[in-house]
Design a protein around this nucleic acid. Structure first.
Lengths: 208, 208
DNA sequence: CACTAAATCCCCCGTTTAGGTAATTGTTTG
DNA sequence: CAAACAATTACCTAAACGGGGGATTTAGTG
């Protein structure tokens, strides 16, 4: 067993791949001996060599790195997978994190810090480029929804606990009829037509 | 207008407060002239002095820093609020982020890096102690739920779109009766008894 | 002061849903 | 191979729900 942090790279651009390898192997405590240029062989290589950390690109020629992350995750849930991508769109970021990445580096911003990020990942952290981190945090924050009134929000809140009309009525000390009326208004405002739809929308849009 | 990043501290322990102030005022580009020892006066001070960054403790004598964060957020949504707390429990972390914090530093781990974190926050980042960052990221990942079968997961998926039995049946090319049956099983497994409850649970527990 | 919006309560009616019981067909797995 | 489980369909009933009316009170706003 070596003392090095073993790294595998999956990245299609040869220049970047080589640069990453050099950056890593010039640093102490980390070592990269295997790098792959597409997703399928990358995943295969990762499963075979079982590194401590994977550096994963997203825009790969054969299939998205995101599905690769999922595959690796299924086999080795403890492995640290760091995304290193040029893509900064909402969907790529969150899909990658949902798939199991433990960090997300934007190529343009953080490629020189990749070794530092590897240390951080091994240290139980979650290295992210600043802009990514901010967006991740922002995703927790409720967006201000003028549409729904305060009282309606309370009703919606109870609804999201899965309560029936009757239970909501009890919780808010109003009649079942009033709950029904609020729900009608909420449905109109959210453009939905059932409790489950309303709950789904409310939770996804972080209204509650 | 000064060129300094203006910082206000809200922290009840005098020793820490003083140390933070020294750390900040010994660094360049940042300056702290106001510090408060409880939440209410802290919020008041923040609203009055309108700093660029707020350093906020959570365990304050009068009320939780979390409500303070919310109050500040309501007035100045663009202000960067950094939590600096000893509390590392799940609830404190996520409540603080939901309330509007843009970063979370664990006192024991990151107090020396507080100035660095302030720079990072002003730079559009979201400074977090390593363990916090990892937990934030982990919260995106679907927890492996053996309980629900693959087919049931599909049904649950459609359910989370707010569909009726009939529409789910159409979407999955099965009879309404089968949908009903799946739902019954899902309800049992999730320990719920209605569509909205199931949707709420599925989305909150990230089953879908 | 009139107007509006929010919150409250009421009725009706048809549809949807939840829970019970039962049965058939594959697939997986010990 | 038998047992267990997943997926499928069926029927019945009472309760819950969604959409359609209408009404009152209070608070805020032009």
């Amino acid at each position: 067993m070596s003392d090095f942090i073993k790294v595998v790279i999956v990245e299609d651009e040869k220049d970047i791949r080589d640069m990453l390898m050099r950056l890593i192997n010039d640093s102490k405590d980390v070592r990269c001996e295997h790098a792959f240029a597409d997703c399928r062989s990358g995943v295969e290589g990762v499963l075979k060599h079982q590194p401590d950390v994977v550096l994963m690109d997203l825009g790969l020629p054969d299939e998205s790195g995101i599905v690769g992350i999922g595959r690796i995750r299924d086999k080795f849930p403890e492995m640290d997978i760091l995304v290193l991508s040029a893509q900064v769109d909402e969907e790529s970021v969150f899909d990658a994190l949902c798939a199991g990445a433990c960090g997300y580096l934007v190529k343009q911003q953080s490629i020189e810090n990749v070794v530092e990020a590897i240390y951080e990942a091994k240290n139980g952290g979650a290295p992210m480029s600043a802009s990514i981190a901010r967006r991740v945090i922002a995703s927790f924050q409720r967006k201000p929804t003028k549409l729904i009134s305060a009282r309606e929000k309370e009703v919606l809140n109870e609804l999201c606990k899965g309560k029936s009309y009757k239970l909501i009525a009890d919780a808010l000390f109003i009649s079942e009829e009033t709950v029904r009326r609020h729900l009608k208004n909420i449905y109109k405002k959210l453009e939905v037509s059932s409790k489950s739809e309303a709950v789904a929308k409310a939770l996804k849009e972080k209204i509650v």
